[in-house]
């Protein structure tokens, strides 16, 4: 099964083409911003490297967050557009799940914490067993609170939020990888393994839109 995997949720713009779990071509550009301008060119380049066209793609995977709200939407909107044109299944992949999957083979049997820096001293985080299987739900929480959840037990920690958690957790947090995005090969592997979903993938924002309901009218009414 030929897979196209996309990630624009965090600091990278990344694309991979894979056959099942084997990567044929991939490119990751850590650009911070400008994903909307870069993504289509990157897809074209990776497809060309893989020697295939859009019509050969049998399944699409895209990261749905958590991450930058705008970045998430760039990827999800593009992937949903590709699905419309190609009529192929589309799988949404959590950036945290991909980060945990990426280190599962080398975590040395430790349980895993994946965490992205969510600013305001908070992290987007999720806990996993040593093989990368989730053991809880994804959360947006203060780094100190996530650190307390380690319970003093050693964890392999991955992601840009790992150092922040480690400042509160001390030795229990073994920071193994502090990259700021989900490795695209892991996104492709999770896409290959996923059960075909009934619903289309939606962004995983983890935080509500920053807006307050309107105050009362400006002038007193009789």
């Amino acid at each position: 099964m030929l897979i196209l995997a996309l990630d624009t949720s965090l600091d990278a713009c990344a694309v991979a083409v894979a056959t099942g779990e084997r990567i044929i071509a991939e490119r990751t550009e850590v650009i911070g911003r400008g994903h909307a301008e870069r993504l289509m060119g990157l897809i074209a380049a990776v497809l060309a490297n893989a020697g295939v066209g859009y019509d050969a793609i049998e399944r699409i995977g895209v990261t749905v967050g958590p991450g930058s709200f705008t970045g998430i939407r760039v990827g999800v909107a593009a992937a949903r557009g590709l699905r419309l044109a190609l009529r192929r299944p589309l799988i949404g992949i959590s950036t945290l799940d991909a980060a945990a999957e990426a280190i599962a083979a080398t975590a040395g049997g430790l349980p895993i914490l994946a965490a992205w820096d969510a600013r305001r001293d908070e992290v987007y985080a999720r806990f996993y067993a040593a093989d990368g299987t989730p053991t809880g739900e994804a959360m947006a929480a203060p780094a100190a609170q996530v650190a307390a959840m380690l319970g003093g037990r050693a964890h392999a920690c991955v992601g840009s939020g790992a150092p922040l958690v480690a400042t509160f957790a001390g030795d229990a947090a073994r920071v193994v990888d502090l990259r700021g995005h989900a490795p695209i090969a892991a996104v492709a592997r999770l896409t290959a393994r996923a059960v075909e979903p009934v619903a289309l993938p939606s962004p995983l924002y983890m935080r509500p839109a920053d807006a307050k309901p309107q105050a009362a009218a400006g002038v007193a009414r009789a």
């Binding site: 939407r73 760039v74 909107a77 992937a79 419309l84």
Partner: peptide, 13 residues
């Protein structure tokens, strides 16, 4: 960005 990315993807594919 949502509309433009969707359009780009349809056009490319």
């Amino acid at each position: 960005l949502v509309g433009l990315m969707t359009a780009k993807a349809i056009a490319a594919a």
